[in-house]
Nucleic acid binder design. Structure first.
Lengths: 110, 110
DNA sequence: GATATTTATCGCAATATTACGATATAAATA
DNA sequence: TATTTATATCGTAATATTGCGATAAATATC
């Protein structure tokens, strides 16, 4: 196989897992960390920072964009990328819900 | 390729991405949600809940265990699984750091 | 207009993931 | 002891991901 059976799960389960999946690669975490520090948007700069080729970095940027974690604005020949400011907020909220639901349940654990 | 170049990234980047990666599948989100609701640990129950075979569910449980998201305790013929209570806390903290770093930077975005 | 610069995409190869049936292992029960 | 129950693992197949070089596309600069 290799394809996950997304049809058998809820839309929420698929949506949540997709965002986490986009964060599940060290290069994409590195890109996010760089954007946090530099803020003003980059692009080809990453080629000198990450140990990856331009083509590979472009792919990772696309995945982050598709997951709505970053956005890209065309600026001449280059594309200016920056974080979607609500990303962390949204994820923190999701995890907070998880945490509260878990704590609300007073049943004993193994 | 197919193998990510983990050597070229920091230990933190690899660690963070690994936890996210483990959450990057709808079945594993479904397992976590079930554990949040039921708390008292399950195992073969999941076979009746998820649209997956016993072998596949066992694999997903192993991945969650390796990422320290759940823990398993042997109980007779079965294994009792439950959430590591600090998982959400840890992830929330990581994301909070990200968020604060991002907000601290007042540079303009594109 | 020719040439650089930047990014995206194509094609390919290597490896990883997902999924399943079959089977092994281990403990409980008849 | 034989059987049931629960889980893990092996082997295999299909698909996805990762990564790169080459190349295309679009704008800037000479």
């Amino acid at each position: 196989m290799g394809a996950s059976k997304s049809a058998g799960f809820t839309e929420e389960q698929n949506d949540i897992s997709q965002v986490f999946k986009a964060l599940g690669h060290p290069a994409r975490i590195a890109i996010i960390q760089h954007l946090m520090n530099i803020k003003s948007c980059i692009c080809n700069d990453l080629v000198g920072i990450l140990p990856l080729s331009q083509a590979t970095i472009s792919q990772h940027l696309r995945e982050l964009k598709e997951a709505q974690i970053i956005k890209g604005t065309i600026d001449g020949t280059s594309v200016c990328y920056c974080l979607n400011s609500n990303v962390f907020e949204t994820m923190i909220n999701t995890l907070h819900e998880f945490k509260e639901l878990d704590q609300k349940n007073t049943k004993e654990c193994c």
